[in-house]
Write a protein that binds this DNA or RNA. Structure first.
Length: 327
DNA sequence: CGAGTTTGACCCGCGC
DNA sequence: GCGCGGGTCAAACTCG
């Protein structure tokens, strides 16, 4: 996996969902999609208030800024969580015999049906930060054959035997199985909020760290989030407890990492996926605008935003603690 | 009594 | 062809 998703830094296959210290009112990635989806001459709505060249450059600079932010956050997360992700089996290259994607498994035909359902449902799924995220998956290749898979690592009390990851959705357990590579049982859940909702969830303790609960979400909800915090990716609802503010999503084209620091009002989301690269003109803009001075200022801004966030520092401390040898 | 959970049986794709 | 193993089903069970 590393090669696939870490390699996609820079301006190319990086999907930006980043808002560091910015107002969450306007969804940043939605703005990005406006930029990306419209021809340059049509930006600004196409009415009499059409965008001036300056405004266009400002927006392009913002795109570049977010691209840089995304790249750097990705590097940070790769450093912080790389080892942990690999241990959890997210690193496809590390464990080729057991592919992460369920599409590669034996239930392919069934999954593909669910994929179609989930794609139909994308439009009304999230009101918040991930709506564009999911939509971009569907739009990238123009088909509805992808199933979104995301993982959440949640730290729990080791004595807690319940395989419950609270994410605001209603789940109905339909099976439990002890798998070969992990003595802990794996629980299978379906979304019980809507009968037609195709989303499934698998929850299993980490083989290495019994205090780590790994929830794997497959598919996307075709109904609004039942909780007040609608719009959040269930995987990203780190919420209470010591869960890591990091979720990893994998669709058939590649993984996505979401760093959710929404508690402070500034949602920091790093979304990196092996998406097709942005249009060539955007890459050109990336090269031109991402000057060293700009990058330096950006690094400072990001460092400030991240280090001032208690959730980030807490997650960092947890990750460091995990790396420390036990005495 | 209905809804949710448990758990053994079954299905099915993959590797040998 | 056969065994393995993950995923699902469905009857039995539990609980409010």
């Amino acid at each position: 996996m590393d090669a696939a998703w870490r390699g996609g830094v820079g301006c190319s296959p990086v999907c930006l969902d980043l808002c560091v210290g910015l107002s969450p009112v306007r969804e940043p990635s939605a703005a990005r999609h406006e930029l990306l989806d419209r021809p340059a001459g049509c930006r600004g709505g196409g009415d009499s208030k059409s965008m001036t060249n300056d405004e266009a450059k400002i927006l392009e600079a913002k795109v570049t800024q977010m691209s840089e932010e995304n790249r750097r956050l990705t590097e940070v997360i790769a450093r912080l969580y790389g080892g942990q992700i690999a241990r959890l089996g997210l690193d496809g290259s590390a464990s080729p015999p057991r592919p992460v994607s369920p599409l590669s498994g034996k239930k392919r035909s069934r999954e593909s049906m669910e994929t179609a359902n989930s794609c139909d449902a994308n439009s009304n799924r999230h009101q918040g930060g991930d709506a564009d995220h999911a939509e971009s998956f569907a739009a990238d290749d123009g088909t509805c054959r992808r199933i979104k898979v995301s993982r959440v690592c949640r730290r729990i009390d080791p004595s807690d035997t319940s395989l419950v990851v609270k994410d605001g959705y209603q789940w109905r357990k339909y099976g439990q199985k002890v798998t070969r590579d992990n003595p802990s049982p794996r629980a299978y859940f379906r979304c019980a909020f809507a009968p037609s909702c195709p989303v499934k969830k698998k929850v299993q303790r980490s083989a290495e760290d019994s205090s780590l609960l790994v929830a794997t979400y497959e598919g996307e909800h075709n109904h609004p989030h039942p909780s007040p915090r609608a719009g959040e990716l269930p995987a990203a609802v780190g919420g209470a407890g010591g869960s890591l503010p990091c979720s990893i999503s994998i669709n058939s084209s590649g993984p996505t990492i979401t760093l959710d620091l929404t508690k402070n009002g500034g949602a920091v989301q790093v979304v990196e996926a092996a998406h097709p690269p942005p249009p060539p003109d955007l890459k050109e803009v990336c090269r031109e605008v991402a000057s060293p001075e700009f990058r330096t200022a950006l690094v400072e801004q990001m460092a400030s935003a991240l280090t001032s966030d208690p959730k980030f520092t807490g997650a960092l401390a947890a990750a460091i603690l995990q790396k420390l040898p036990e005495f």
